[in-house]
Write a protein that binds this DNA or RNA. Structure first.
Lengths: 223, 223
DNA sequence: ACCTGAACACCGTTCAAGT
DNA sequence: ACCTGAACACCGTTCAAGT
């Protein structure tokens, strides 16, 4: 028996523990709460200790993007479908569900300049599926551009056309925006739980996704 | 005549001067260089002086987004076209040119939660054009979602499928990404000047835009 | 090998004070 | 009305030092 009662030996830090804590912090309090100091606190350590396991904050951000992408790859692994379109569609919608669990992720993904390996793997599978479905490499390439962030399951929007249901636009402003006001009266987004970002709700996402996928399928047939 | 030689009376600050300087700073050195202190320095004043003319940094950011949107509205004012599709298309491509002058803007636009008046005006005109072209308000609404940021002229992409032309992917990595590597060999983006963000070059932007516009036109005919 | 304290250079922002 | 100096609370990051 040891003579001294050793204090519960804190689980040592590691890159993985740091990244997991970072994801948790962002999930709970948003990206802005993710500071090195706060992250260390979450782990019961000092901010400076983190630098032994990660190079800099950017490294942490790259790391949690990769972590989310891995989560997507797992969610997507067992998906099978009879044709390329439903296969791609199902993968994208499954990926989307991961983003619904990590609402900070779309904004962060868009700031990364170097692409994570897990994201590349995700795209690689997409390319494979489309090739198998009869696409030329060239058309696949165009398709990825046309899909943009929708390929990964989200659609960062610029403004919410139905912000507050349109009911709160002041009258003087309404005069300046006649068409917008007319459009918004009577339109409301139903399910707040399916909303990613501003107005990217499930129904609208699928509308845009299908519009693009159908268009691509048509181009494939023509080729 | 005044008895004392007054020092050249520095043009006084104003919200507008602050915003103009902010846009210039971002144009020249990027968004990261846009700090209150640096901005003040650019204006020959102290950081604290800015707070007399703007509420907080967020206010500055909202302000320069609105300034860019105004620039877009001016660029787009005189556009006429025979049908809704070319009208919308031309407006969007003209808006895009403004973003090519302010490459920091797409990223910033996507972080704004409240929409600038100038952006609303831009959308209002789009809605008007589409209504006139035979769209129901409901389909216009879906259309705006489907277009997403493309309605304003940019397409924030997640990764550059052709990053460095694909030539620099290490061999061991290439084994893990067979489809991607095959696709990338032989694809190169030609004109770096037309590139917004990562891989959003002019040709790809127009491909995606036309794909969506054609799809919307088809839905309009069916309705 | 792993962690930390003290310190540096930088933020945004306040507030009372100057003209 | 307009601007500023000093100060505060926070960043990310370094470095030499502890175990």
């Amino acid at each position: 028996m040891a003579t001294d009662a050793v204090p519960a030996p804190r689980t040592p830090l590691s890159r993985e523990r740091v990244l997991r804590a970072a994801v948790g912090l962002a999930d709970e309090h948003g990206l802005r709460a993710l500071t090195m100091r706060r992250l260390a606190e979450e782990l019961g350590a000092e901010a400076m200790s983190l630098y032994y396991h990660v190079a800099k904050k950017e490294d942490v951000l790259d790391g949690i993007v990769d972590a989310v992408a891995q989560e997507i790859n797992e969610a997507v692994a067992d998906i099978a479908a009879p044709d390329w379109k439903t296969a791609v569609r199902r993968r994208i919608l499954a990926a989307r569900e991961v983003f619904l669990r990590h609402r900070w992720a779309p904004a962060l993904f868009e700031t990364r300049s170097s692409t994570s390996l897990a994201v590349l793997r995700y795209y690689d599978a997409l390319v494979g599926l489309m090739r198998q479905g009869g696409f030329s490499y060239d058309l696949v390439h165009h398709s990825l551009h046309a899909l943009g962030s929708r390929a990964l399951g989200f659609n960062q929007e610029l403004f919410d056309p139905a912000e507050s249901g349109g009911g709160d636009i002041p009258a003087d402003l309404a005069d300046q925006l006649p068409h917008l006001v007319s459009m918004l009266s009577g339109i409301a987004h139903d399910d707040p739980d399916s909303t990613l970002g501003w107005c990217d709700d499930q129904a609208e996402f699928e509308f845009g996704l299908d519009l693009v996928l159908d268009g691509l399928d048509r181009l494939r047939e023509q080729a």
